[in-house]
Computed example of a mutant assay.
Amino acid sequence: MEFSPFNNVVKRCLQGMEMEEKGKPEEASKLFLQGWHEATNDFEKFLAAHYVARHQKHVSDKLHWLETTLQFALKINDDAVKSAFPSLYLNIAKCYEDLNNAEKAKENFDLAMSYKYNPSDKGPFYHGTKANLQVGDLLTAGSNSNYKSELKMNHIYFTALVNGAGLAAALAKGDGNERVYIIEPTGNYENDPNLTDKKFPGNPTRSYRSEAPLKIVGEVTEWVKQTPEEIQKFREKLETNKGEIIN
């Protein structure tokens, strides 16, 4: 199940989040419900239900939608969805706590902790860039950020989604050709905290980072490429983003 910002339900959720940022919760709620009604598969229903849940005014209604989110998440054998389990079980536990159901609250708190330190993604992994590299080369931390040039990065970033790596290559600085390399981490890695449990639940882009080098073991030449207009829109969003990068 590949997360894509160009998916129609994802777009609807992004539109809803934009309304939230503008202080228009009713419009946001309508967009999330529209996404729910437009969803055609378990992943889209999982995603839309997550946003519908947070606009419920009563705890019992919020719990219903969170458990609906969980119901669809459990149907999907996908690492991107599994990364949402810690926060999902935690929010369910808090609802039971508010409803004075201590037994169900503890059960879900325990489930949240059991998933928190249990990464499951084993790749394959990719890194997108415009640099001309060879098999056997090492990608290391310490380069300046593509998004904030004054920031030197303490980690090297990668993803398990080839199309995500392709988008990163398109957005990377430089005049070279877009390249997507197959990489192997040489040390421990973690969910990218800049993306995990931020706008979307869990780590749907399957984005990771490591302080250890990444070894190039191959290259792919086929991935879904976006139009120049879509890439430009992404660049404009990055330029206007006021958020801090967790380094």
Rank of each mutant, 00 (worst) to 15 (best):
A141I: 09
V162C: 01
F158H: 11
L171K: 03
Y115K: 08
S120P: 00
N146Q: 14
G128L: 04
K152F: 02
V135W: 00
K116W: 00
T159W: 02
D137W: 08
N163W: 01
P124R: 09
F125R: 06
V135Q: 11
V162H: 04
N144P: 00
M113K: 13
L151C: 08
Y126S: 07
N108Q: 10
F125D: 05
S114Q: 14
I156C: 05
Y126K: 05
T129I: 05
A170W: 00
L133V: 00
L171P: 06
A112G: 02
A131D: 14
N146A: 14
S145E: 09
A141N: 09
S120E: 05
L139A: 10
N118G: 00
G136V: 14
P119C: 04
A169M: 06
G164T: 12
N163R: 08
N163A: 05
S114M: 11
A141H: 09
L151A: 07
P124N: 09
I156W: 02
P119W: 04
Y157Q: 04
N144S: 15
A160K: 01
V162K: 14
Y147T: 12
G166K: 02
G164E: 02
K152M: 11
G128Q: 06
N154H: 09
A169I: 04
K116R: 13
G128T: 03
Y147S: 12
N154T: 08
N118F: 09
F158I: 10
I156H: 01
L161K: 06
L111I: 04
H155E: 11
A112C: 04
F109E: 10
L133Q: 11
N144F: 14
L139H: 03
A169H: 01
G128D: 03
Y117D: 14
N108W: 05
A160V: 01
H127P: 05
L111Y: 07
Y115H: 14
T159M: 06
K116M: 11
E107F: 13
S149P: 04
K116D: 03
S114E: 14
G123N: 10
K148S: 11
S143W: 07
P119I: 07
L151Q: 12
H155T: 12
L138M: 15
L111C: 03
T159L: 05
L111W: 06
H127W: 03
S143T: 12
H155K: 12
L111E: 11
D110C: 01
L151K: 15
A112I: 04
F158R: 08
H155Q: 12
Y157D: 03
L167V: 12
P124H: 10
S149I: 08
S114A: 15
D110M: 12
H127C: 06
I156E: 06
S149T: 13
A112P: 00
S149W: 06
N154C: 12
M153D: 06
L133E: 06
V162Q: 07
D121P: 08
E150T: 14
E107T: 13
N163H: 13
P119G: 02
A169F: 01
T129N: 04
Y157V: 05
S143G: 14
A112W: 01
A112N: 01
K130L: 04
P124I: 13
S145H: 13
A168W: 07
A160M: 07
G128R: 03
D110I: 05
T159P: 04
Y147K: 11
G164R: 02
N163S: 05
T159F: 02
G142Y: 11
L171Q: 09
G123L: 10
Y115M: 03
